[in-house]
Amino acid sequence: MSIRYIILALVLIAVAFGLLFITVPEKSNQIEVTTFLKSINDPARFINTDDVADRIITEDPTLLIIDVRKPAEFEAFNIPGSVNIPLGDLMNEENRKYINQNLLDVVFVSNDGVYANTAWALAAQNGYKNLYVLERGLNRWFETIMAPVEPAETAPIEEFELFSVRKGAGQYFGVQAYIEAPVIEKVIQKKRAPKKVIVKEVQEVEAEGGC
């Protein structure tokens, strides 16, 4: 056997032996930065309050609302059917199963959208699908669903239709009475004519006799 073959065989063994010392690279399941930036600029990741209300009322089984505020805030007010997972606990192993799935549309909710957007970013970076943010958060929810403002009289008919839909939705979510803008009615005081007091004159009836 020629010395060349022995050297080459030894090189092969040495290189293969070196494989034992390289660590298996940790598989990062995070998505590419460019993909992430593209999706962060995509307005389709926002869902507005009317759509969410509609989907709750029609009992859409593919909707999962995740409220990422603190439990105390959640207790004080929440969207019916929403699940409370505080932002800090979102990436816990037991909570990931809520967001790492392909069946439901996940809608993140917070007061204004800052926490909800953070939650969205955390989940989207991990490549999870079907993630949405409630546009302008619970503040907007309150403005539109819980206490919608009646449009001005000159507003187009669509606004009035939207208003009545919102009012209906609000009733569904348990709004008892609407705080409507006070309607200033002109109080017309009619001068009433003094009542005529009819005094019946008691007429003496003579006893009629008869036999």
């Binding site: 073959y5 092969l12 063994i13 293969a16 032996f17 034992l20 390289i22």
Partner: peptide
């Protein structure tokens, strides 16, 4: 990595036996 190392050793053994 371990598998490839074992496979390499087997190959070199096979080359030696072959020669």
């Amino acid at each position: 990595y371990g598998f490839v190392l074992i496979f390499t050793l087997l190959a070199v053994a096979a080359f030696t036996i072959a020669s």
